[in-house]
Design a protein around this nucleic acid. Sequence first.
DNA 1: CTGTTAGCGCTTTCAC
DNA 2: GTGAAAGCGCTAACAG
Lengths: 332, 332
Amino acid sequence: MSATIRDIKEQTGLSLATISKYLNGGNVLPENKEKIEASIKELHYEVNEIARGLVTSKTRTVGILVHNVSSPFSGQLLHYLSEILRSNKYGMLICDSNNDEEIEEQNVRYLLSKKVDGIIVIPVSEKAAFLDGAVKKNVPVVLLDRALADGTFDCVKIDNRAAVTKAIQVLLDNHHEKIAIIASKREYTGRERYAGFVEALEKSGHKVRKEYVRLGIHSLAWGYENMKELLELKDRPTAVFTDNYEITLGAMMAINESSLKCPDDISVVGVDDQIIFHLINPPLYMVEQPLQEMSNKAVELLLNRIESGSLDTPMDISLGTRIVEGKSVKTL
Amino acid sequence: MSATIRDIKEQTGLSLATISKYLNGGNVLPENKEKIEASIKELHYEVNEIARGLVTSKTRTVGILVHNVSSPFSGQLLHYLSEILRSNKYGMLICDSNNDEEIEEQNVRYLLSKKVDGIIVIPVSEKAAFLDGAVKKNVPVVLLDRALADGTFDCVKIDNRAAVTKAIQVLLDNHHEKIAIIASKREYTGRERYAGFVEALEKSGHKVRKEYVRLGIHSLAWGYENMKELLELKDRPTAVFTDNYEITLGAMMAINESSLKCPDDISVVGVDDQIIFHLINPPLYMVEQPLQEMSNKAVELLLNRIESGSLDTPMDISLGTRIVEGKSVKTL
DNA sequence: CTGTTAGCGCTTTCAC
DNA sequence: GTGAAAGCGCTAACAG
């Protein structure tokens, strides 16, 4: 079994309190410090964080709830989150909600039973109800990427409307008028981006054509099927805005399988830049999200609440985006 | 604060032992059962897993150590691992080693201090030294995807040599003789796949040409640069085998940027199938790894050791692969 | 089946 | 600066 603080007590003859104090960075006589250090080395002692957690009711562990760990979007966020948390000496307990609201709710309960100090969540549910337990237990929550319809939590996301506006502007600048959208109607980002789409078009005096609007879910299949249908329309759009990574991927598959070419026959611009979109032919115009900044900000907000117990009004932070040029837009 | 078992004791008048017994699935009088359940509901009681962990020295948490969370390969494994662990009522504490051996070693210490019941690791290091702590503390370890040079642990991976043989066979069947390889020389999989490459060529009476062998690291950049160089060779290979996802991606970028075409000028076949490779033009011939099976098997082995305390000789399991057809190989 | 009791390994008063 | 003692919330004997 592992050595405990008691074994060190035996070896050094010091009291538990002194050793504990040393372990927590308190002042101890240099002489004792040496004794303790020697003993720790000899016994390969390592603090039992479980025991510590029980008494301090702090676990230095943050729960991360993602809609789906295998999406590249969350993979990258997780990577940055891990980095910044680690540098703050926090670990992360990750739960994959698998895009399922029930699992998400279970996961929250699980995290709470594990006494995480706080939770960062890319939510699946649109309502805050699944977080009730956390609220009740005063476990701070930060929403990432997506806001909720109700509830008051810190939230870090991008300015989705502005992001879409940028994308649409590229199309408008290239004289496109017949612009379609393939997006999700379920997630916050999907809805917000659709709203931005409508806004951008209407502000510039264009109208949104019903047959060009394809709102469904964030999936490859949805992107694929709807691009396919759009391409078969008698009055085909000249450009398509795709709302996220999976949809864009599916949409490009559909184009590649058809006899049409991008950008000659159809232009494409989307949100969620990934290296892959510069590999495919043509490289895509995409709006890039500042994933690292988002992660850093989310952790900053969370640790602020955890460590200073801040009860300030939640912050809603919308970060800017930038557009990455590609060759997927034709000038008409 | 959260309700404790003691609050339930007050409300129900029962003893701690009875309540604890109920919580752990023991038999209690129906009458008492009802009382407890009512009380739990009323108080929103939830077991404090930290306290439970302290006494049982089981946390029902598995540590997952990945070389890099943001790679699609680990993202998918994580997804499957999460699923199967959840169904066994285990959670996962994930650490991203960021391809850094030092971080990896720190991570092991961290996981041990969190008293995880076991560890599943896609190792960065090639030697087992970083796992010494786990061995000493009898925390079971299962290696995933990559074996180590020393140490004895359960290990779940694919039959890398067979996988490469399949890939090379496709090339040979199509009469390729000038076959290059871009791979990693660091990771186990890289080395093993290179060995498979040599074996496959030599067995079929071909020789391995030095200038066609590009061993470096598993990165997009390595794939990109080396494909570029291969394409510029006076005596260009007719086909290239790429060892994993990132390298394949980089290699395809290089081809796309060049004036050459795949498969007309250069054929490509690799390992690590991802949906993306069917999107690009041409769709790629790739060897697919059974990620879900790998995950299930790894968890099965780990839980077996955790729950039955098995000390059997470690198993080394190599799963089979299958090749997914594409259009990236030209018949000469 | 139920209750009493003694810890799990640590931190934290509070004297000294 | 150090030590003795209490206790975090729970489980696990052991009696009854």
